[in-house]
Structure formats: C-alpha cells, structure tokens
C-alpha cells in the first residue's frame, strides 16, 4: 500500500500549504462599480487610503453600470458607484438604494481613426457627429451592455433622431470599455468612451485612436455613490457602506480623487460632491 500512503501524504501536504495561505478575517464591504473606474486604476489608488483611515477593505466588482445597479437591487453588494444619474434616481425612488451622493465627474468623448472617414472633427456637437456617422455608414462600435456609457450613447442617438439598431455599420459588442476601444481601434471604427478609460490604456499610442469630438455639454459624465437599502436587505453592511460613502464625499476622499493621476500624469476624475 506504499502507493496510497504516498499519495495521501502528498495530498495532505498540499492541503496544509493551501490553508496556510488563507487570508484572515477582516471587515470587508462589496462595491459594484463600472469598468471605467477599475480600468483607469482609480480604485487601486484611493482604496488603500480609505482602508488606512478606517480599516475597512472594499472589494470591487467591476461591471457595467446596468449590471452594477442590478447587483445592488439583488442585495449582492453593499454599495454602488456608477454613472447613470437618471437610473440611479429612479432606483432610489423605488427604494432599492438610499443616501445617493454625487462624487465626481469626467466627460465622454467620441474617438475614432485619425483619418476620420466621416469627417466629424470639424463638428461641434455629439448629435451632429452621430448623424454624420450614420449618413456616411461608417462603422460605430456600441458597448451594447446596458452600461452608463451605453445609456449615454443611446440617448445621443435618440436626440439625433436615428435608430441605429440593426444597421450594418452599427456593431454591438457587449464588452467593457477597454475591450470596446480595442475593437474600435482594430476595426477602424468610431465609439463613445469616457475620457478616463481612453487615457488610461497603457498602449494607447499603439492603438491609433484619436479624440475627434469633445466639450459638448451633453457629454458630461456624473458619477454617484449610494448604499443598498438596509430595510430591503437587512444583511448588508450598511454602517460600513455609509462610512465609505461619507469618506468619498469628505474633504479627504475628494482630495484623494483629485490627486489620482494615470501613468502619464493625467487627472481622470474631478471631485464634485454635493
């Protein structure tokens, strides 16, 4: 029975090693947020500061805004940090969340190939640019994932009076922002992106996408934070979630957000807590 003895000893040794590496118990809360905040590196920068101040560890689940709100509505997270103010206010009214606050903003930009086949560079508004892209049948990549950016994009199409659904040049990829930018770059297509994710792509130069339209007030991008309603889900860590929210909107949290820079020294988020 030498064989079995050796095998069992081996397995036990592995098990022992595995248990040693197990983490210890600590206070952690779950925050559902958007791919833009994760891809840009904002959380990696501010969460250690928050943890140092309060001893609370924040686990970030980065999905699109639509999915993040859904995670909150199901009670799977304690707090959400997203960017779709109308939807946030609606779910607040429905009682799924409480204590919403504006936290920070940045803006959306329209990016595309530098040769700008639809010629939107000279235009002033996002609505005009979208119209031009549709007229010229140039490829446009849509997030198509119900995220904050996707909702913004749909609202621009609506304002332009165009229904791009089903058009040959309109490609819905159902991916996060960074991947969508990669697809747009490889297909020489236009897309709508938040400035932060675009700037933070490590290999941005090599991708060859240029900002072709920016500065339209319609492209304002507000981020908000809110806690899952503890009356709906008594298990949520409401107290710790509120500590996190209050920290984000405090002077200290706001300064932390303002001082975050990407690898090239760009400021990606501007604090504007109410």
């Amino acid at each position: 029975m030498n064989f079995w003895r050796n095998t069992i000893t081996g397995i036990l040794l592995v098990l022992l090693l595995l248990t040693v590496s197990t983490g210890n118990a600590e206070t952690r809360i779950r925050c559902a947020s958007t791919t833009s905040t994760q891809n840009s590196g904002l959380f990696e920068y501010i969460l250690p500061l928050f943890e140092k101040d309060t001893g609370i560890k924040v686990d970030v689940i980065a999905v699109g805004t639509g999915a993040a709100l859904e995670l909150g509505r199901r009670g799977d997270v304690d707090v959400v940090l997203v960017h779709a103010k109308d939807d946030e206010l609606r779910m607040l009214r429905q009682g799924w969340f409480v204590n919403r606050h504006d936290v920070m903003y940045n803006d959306f930009v329209i990016v595309g190939p530098p040769e700008d086949p639809a010629g939107i560079r000279s235009l002033q508004t996002a609505v005009d640019a979208f119209r031009r892209i549709a007229e010229r049948n140039t490829k446009f990549i849509s997030r198509g994932d119900n995220s904050g950016t996707h909702k913004k994009e749909l609202s621009i199409w609506k304002a332009a009076g165009i229904n791009p659904e089903g058009k040959k040049w309109y490609l819905q990829v159902g991916q996060g922002m960074a991947k969508t930018l990669r697809i747009a770059a490889n297909l020489r297509a236009y897309t709508l992106t938040d400035r932060g994710t675009y700037l933070s792509l490590v290999d941005r130069e090599r991708l060859g996408l240029k900002i072709l339209l920016e500065g339209d007030p319609l492209l304002f991008n507000q981020y908000g934070v809110m806690a899952v309603n503890p009356e709906r889900y008594p298990h949520v860590k409401y107290k710790e979630a509120m500590t996190f929210i209050n920290w984000l909107i405090s002077d200290r949290g706001q300064k932390a957000i303002a001082s975050f820079r990407d690898a090239r020294g760009n400021q990606l988020f501007h604090p504007n807590a109410d």
Binding site: G23, R28, Q38, N39, F43, E44, D59, V60, I61, A62, G176, A178, K179, R182, S200, L201, V202, D203, R204, L207
Partner: peptide
C-alpha cells in the same frame, strides 16, 4: 467577480490586464 487581491486568479487577471493593455 475578479476582485483584486481576493478573488483574482490567473485566468481572470490575464483577461483584465489584456483589456487594460498591460
């Protein structure tokens, strides 16, 4: 959920870093 330092394993980290361009 691919949480940094908690549930991020090799395969999910590769997918994320490839997205970020790192």
């Amino acid at each position: 959920g691919n949480i940094a330092g908690y549930t991020r394993v090799m395969t999910t980290a590769i997918a994320l870093e490839a997205d970020r361009g790192d």
